[in-house]
């Protein structure tokens, strides 16, 4: 019996040794020489592999950074300026500070504001619904509410708000990777400049129909009246296709455009409450 034990041990030991030798030579033969800085850069990245930088993942981004002679075109939106600063230090390059951004869904057409005129019954994704028709309401530009942005978000930064009809971006979780921007078939989501305390003044509408049509479809639609455009002291508002747009890089958060909007299509977020109610003014105006 003992001889069996010995045989077993010897055989296994020989197999182990042979395999070790083979592994050693194979490892030598197929060794890949890489720039060690790639590992360093990758280590300083958030490791989310979200693709927000435009590369396939953090490693691909690290490789691109190492190859680049200038970091101006490269940005990790998740890590922000801190991370890019670290990357720059590792590579001995100049970091270019960029404004942090945040995603915003430019539709306020919740079920209360936008009456349904039909019901969709198919695979519940925005992409498929939008391939069939313009949507359950008369607004062909508005949010479909099936949450393709929610599915695309790797950071749990989108709240579907079940029953409301339009999701909401959670500012504190959003890293501005842009996955939702690509996922939205209605092109509703915009990456805006992140303001102090996440304050926003934004046209929450993408309806390019004429005023009467837009207004009929949704009570908070932008009707393209240009009142906000005339009001804005900073030229931050542009008018195109019956639709106002506030450029977040130019907006100074003065909020003058908000009370003049006759349909409340412009919304202000995360501001302290106003002293004078804006609605009163609006009603007297109209």
């Amino acid at each position: 019996m003992s001889i069996t034990v010995v045989y077993t041990i010897v055989t296994l030991a020989v197999i182990g040794a042979t395999a070790a030798v083979i592994l050693y030579f194979v490892a030598q033969k197929f060794k890949v020489v890489e720039d060690p800085r790639i590992d360093d850069v990758e280590g300083s990245l958030p490791g989310a592999n979200c693709g927000g930088c435009g590369f396939a993942g953090c490693r691909a981004f690290a490789e691109a950074c190492v190859k680049a002679s200038d970091l101006g075109d490269l940005n990790c939106p998740v890590g922000g300026n801190d991370t890019m600063g670290q990357v720059a230090t590792i590579l001995g390059l100049e970091a270019v500070a960029k404004d942090p951004r945040v995603a915003f869904i430019r539709c306020n057409g919740t079920c209360d504001h936008r009456p349904k005129t039909s019901q969709f019954d198919g695979a519940t994704t925005c992409a498929i619904a939008s391939s069939v028709y313009s949507g359950e309401s008369d607004c062909q530009f508005g949010c479909l509410g099936y949450g393709d942005c929610y599915d695309a978000c790797e950071f749990d930064a989108i709240d579907l708000r079940a029953g409301m009809g339009v999701p909401l971006v959670l500012d504190d979780k959003c890293v501005a990777c842009g996955a939702c921007v690509d996922a939205c078939p209605k092109d509703l989501i915009e990456l805006r400049k992140r303001m102090p305390k996440d304050r926003k003044v934004v046209v929450a509408c993408r309806n390019m129909d004429k005023g009467a049509v837009a207004k009929k479809a949704c009570s908070v639609a932008c009707i393209g009246c240009s009142k906000c455009f005339k009001e804005c002291p900073f030229d931050a508002i542009t008018m195109e296709n019956n639709l106002a747009f506030i450029d977040s890089d130019k907006c100074k958060l003065c909020r003058k455009c908000v009370p003049v909007c006759p349909t409340n299509a412009i919304i202000e977020l995360n501001f302290p409450p106003r002293k004078v109610k804006p609605e009163v003014e609006v009603e007297t105006n109209s």
Binding site: G122, A123, A127, S131
Partner: peptide, 12 residues
């Protein structure tokens, strides 16, 4: 299952 819904989408 909504087979064609997704196939049509993928085909597109």
């Amino acid at each position: 299952r909504p087979l064609l819904d997704y196939i049509r989408f993928g085909k597109g």
